[in-house]
Amino acid sequence: MSSRDRILARVRTAVADAPAAPAITRDYLTSHTPDDPVAVLDLLHENLADYRAVVHRTDAAGPLITELLAARGSGSVLVPDGLPREWLSGATAVRIDDTPDSTAAELDAVDSVVTGCALAIAETGTIVLDAGPGQGRRRISLVPDHHICVVRVPDQVVASVPQAMSRLDPRRPLTWISGPSATSDIELDRVEGVHGPRTLEVVLLSG
């Protein structure tokens, strides 16, 4: 008998006389926020900032991103496939394409990365990347120390986790990001900046 069959047989024996499980209830809220795009956006801004993401609002991504890269002194920037051209049109940093062949060590030498996202969740201050156009492979938003992420407002902003789940595709690799890398491992106190990007800048792009 294989271990698979043994485990399944043990499970069946274990629950054979168990009572039926009560039906799953879903009377929890689908959102905790008033259905008002302005309030939802303000909440997203507030919660992103609360976990130490640097938040910017603009209706022209290109000039702002140029300024952010220059302010940081970034000499190189990772560019995922499908990133809108105008977002980096003014930047002087050397552009490095996200390719399957680049090694982790090569990515580690890049200063910054600019990506879009699949959506952002206001109640938790979270951006979700799904490796779609303008987002690239999961590792590019991980290895460089500086991540600029553009959120299109209001299309990509949802209020709550349940609203986000119904819009995401589980077949895609998903990365949920809530602020820069952090740890609570020293005396259960939160400290920002461990292995992921230590600086996360979120650009809320309207229009």
């Binding site: 999961r138 589980p170 895609r172 949920w176 939160r190």
Partner: peptide, 21 residues
């Protein structure tokens, strides 16, 4: 667990993804 609205990173993957990971 960490008393956060959301932990900094959550990864979700389904089998393997072509050319990613």
């Amino acid at each position: 667990s960490t008393a956060e609205r959301m932990n900094p990173y959550t990864s979700m993957w389904t089998g393997t993804a072509d050319g990613d990971g």
